[in-house]
C-alpha cells in the first residue's frame, strides 16, 4: 500500500491509497459536512453536501466516494460550495414537512444541525407541503415520511448491517419514498427483526421509537460502528 500526499484547504495531508477525500480530511481535522454518509455502510453520494472543488477538475466531486490521488489540491469550503450546500438544505426543507418545534429529533437532528452550520435562516423556495404517509403499525417504532430526506441510510443499515432488507426506495423523483417490505405496513414485514438500527441511522426524526415526544429522540450511533468493527476487525468490546 502506498501513501498519497495532497493538499486540503492549503494544509498538506498524507493519506493511504484507497482512502477517500472525506476520510483524509477527517484525519487531518478538516470538517466536511455530510448527510447521507454513514460510517459503516456503503456510500451513495446522494445528498451532495460533501462536494469539494479539486483544482484542474471541472466537476465538483463528492468527498465521500472520491479517492485521494497524488498531489491534488482540494478546497472544501469555497463561497461557491457554501452557497450550493445552503441551497441543498433549503431544497430539503422546502421539499418535505420539516417542523422542528414539534419533531422528536428537535435538538438532535442532523438536518437541523446542517441548517445552522450553513447559515440557513430561511428557505427562498416555496414549501411544497407534500401529503406523505405515516406508518406506526410497528409495536416499537414508527416512520413519519414527512420528515424523510431520502438519504437511504435506513435502507443501507437494514440491508448491509442487519441483513434484513426491510427498507427500500419506491417510485421515483419527487414521488420517491421509503417503502417497507413489499409495500406492506411495517408490522407485517416478517423480515424486520425490530433491531432498531434504522432509528439509530436516521438523521432526522423520520424513523423514531414510539413513546418519544418532541426533542426526545436519542440515537445509539456508536452501536453501528461497533457492529461493523466487531464483524470486520473482530473487536468485541465497546
Amino acid at each position: 500500500m502506498s501513501v498519497k500526499t495532497l493538499t486540503i484547504n492549503n494544509t498538506p495531508v498524507a493519506a493511504e491509497e484507497g482512502k477517500t477525500i472525506l476520510e483524509a480530511a477527517k484525519e487531518a481535522g478538516i470538517h466536511i459536512p455530510t448527510l447521507c454518509f454513514l460510517e459503516g455502510v456503503s456510500t451513495v453520494a446522494a445528498c451532495r453536501m460533501c462536494l469539494v472543488e479539486i483544482e484542474g477538475i471541472n466537476k465538483l466531486l463528492p468527498a465521500c466516494v472520491t479517492q485521494v490521488t497524488e498531489a491534488i489540491v482540494v478546497h472544501t469550503n469555497t463561497p461557491k460550495l457554501q452557497e450550493y450546500r445552503r441551497m441543498v438544505i433549503e431544497l430539503l426543507f422546502a421539499e418535505g414537512n420539516h417542523v422542528c418545534s414539534i419533531c422528536v429529533a428537535n435538538g438532535n437532528c442532523e438536518l437541523q444541525n446542517l441548517a445552522i452550520e450553513v447559515g440557513m435562516d430561511h428557505t427562498r423556495f416555496p414549501y411544497r407541503f407534500p401529503k406523505r404517509s405515516v406508518d406506526v403499525s410497528h409495536p416499537q417504532f414508527g416512520i413519519d415520511r414527512n420528515r424523510c430526506i431520502l438519504c437511504t441510510r435506513c435502507v443501507r443499515v437494514c440491508g448491509e448491517i442487519e441483513g434484513a432488507h426491510v427498507w427500500d426506495v419506491a417510485q421515483r423523483g419527487a414521488d420517491a419514498y421509503i417503502v417497507s417490505g413489499l409495500s406492506q405496513p411495517w408490522s407485517e414485514v416478517e423480515a424486520c427483526t425490530s433491531c432498531g438500527k434504522c432509528v439509530d441511522a436516521c438523521p432526522t426524526g423520520a424513523i423514531f421509537r414510539k413513546g418519544t415526544t418532541t426533542a426526545e429522540k436519542q440515537r445509539d450511533r456508536a452501536k453501528l460502528q461497533f457492529l461493523v468493527d466487531a464483524r470486520e476487525k473482530h473487536e468485541w468490546t465497546r
Binding site: 451532495r48 422546502a94 416555496p126 411544497r128 426506495v169 423523483g173 419527487a174 420517491a176
Partner: peptide
C-alpha cells in the same frame, strides 16, 4: 426531467420540482 428524475440526489429530485414551479 422532474418526472424522470430517479430521486436519488437532492439537486435533481428537489431542484427540478422547484424549477418547474
Amino acid at each position: 426531467c422532474r418526472e424522470e428524475s430517479c430521486g436519488k440526489c437532492v439537486p435533481c429530485r428537489a431542484g427540478t420540482v422547484q424549477l418547474y414551479s
